[in-house]
């Protein structure tokens, strides 16, 4: 098995992704990631010349197909209470979350 993503590297990625994994799940995911990288390695052999540009979309957007920008107008949602109803914790229309990690400045 490829070991491109080592345990240390994997743990860093998990932390950056704001995840936590049980040991068994972590080992399964790390193994799958390394297997997928074996498939991805095929790309390294693809001959690319300098003129081959990166494509953000398959179908090119042209003046004939691209939607014009909307006017920059505020368009308030008509039923904000329906959005607030979906929030896990709300007090007086404020969405409540635990404290953001911080250091007090002296």
């Amino acid at each position: 098995m490829s070991e491109e993503i080592t345990r240390d590297l994997f743990n860093k990625l998990v932390d950056l992704a704001a995840l936590e994994l049980e040991e068994e799940e972590a080992e399964y995911i790390r193994r799958q990631l390394n297997d997928q990288l074996t498939a991805i390695a095929e790309l390294a052999a693809v001959p690319l010349d300098e003129e081959t540009a990166a494509a953000a979309h398959g179908v090119p957007y042209t003046a004939d197909t691209r939607a014009p920008f909307r006017e920059d107008n505020a368009d308030p949602f008509e039923r904000p209470e329906e959005i607030l109803k979906g929030a896990p914790e709300v007090i007086d229309r404020y969405i409540i979350a635990p404290e953001t990690p911080h250091e007090d400045l002296k």
Partner: peptide
């Protein structure tokens, strides 16, 4: 959760299955 970071991690750990987690990491 003690703080926002812990809330994010726990929520995402419990809320996502293995496939989304794998894809996010890749």
């Amino acid at each position: 959760a003690e703080d926002l970071d812990e809330l994010y991690r726990r929520t995402r750990a419990e809320g996502f299955g293995a496939q989304p987690k794998l894809r996010i990491l890749m």
